[in-house]
Amino acid sequence: MYNFNFHSPSSLDEAINIYNNSDDPKFLAGGMTLLASMKQRLIAPSDLIDIRNIKNLSEVIIDGESIKIGALYSHHSLSINEDINSKIKNLAKLANGIGDPAVRKMGTIGGSIANSDPAADWPAAILALNSNINTNIRSIKNIDFFTGMFETLLADDEIITSIDIKIPDLFDYKKFPNPASRYAIVGVAIAKYNNDVTVAVSGASHTPFIAKGLSEFLSENFSSDIPKNTVSKDDLNEDIHASAEYRANLIDVLTQQILKNN
């Protein structure tokens, strides 16, 4: 890993100020992707700005209809939070399926979303759930947030502060994980608000996406008897782990499994 200047600001304003006065800075949260990438010399920031000492970024606030999760809340904390799990069943299960216990201790929900790994678990959940990503300057609607492979609508000097999730009637997530990395070869998240159902997919394409055909069908008819291959294999990844056709089929299979379980 190349060397860098290290900063540990105690406020968002201070963090942004350091960012704007550095050559090629990066914000550091749990570091579970950033540090690994730096060790491989895939990136070499001039300055690392550790945001973990900024107060109030790891709070969870639950009101009647929604949950606000602080960006620095770890996957582990989320996986054992009974209050969150009683409001949104299966969110803890998703968190508990990321990486391994030591990675979940460090990794954060905000970091995962900001990184926008196309095979990560949170992006599918965030897309399926009626949610907003709050930053130091604005609130971004979930469907606008993920713009491409490892790309988001975030500006360079913008920090996610929290995620607001409207509590659904039903939520579930199921992935077919790569056995070594635990990343999703395909992951499917389904959220239901009254008759409004959204199916979101990770792992299958260059960016997480909403499966429109499945979402429309399930909004009309919430049953496991779904139409097959509504997601075209032409839009899906093909690699040593799975062909595009296999991924298209997995989307249908995982969707059916979720529906049969709920």
Binding site: G31, L35, A36
Partner: peptide
């Protein structure tokens, strides 16, 4: 809690 010392500064 266990953390991985190869992945933290």
């Amino acid at each position: 809690s266990a953390i991985k010392s190869c992945s933290i500064l």
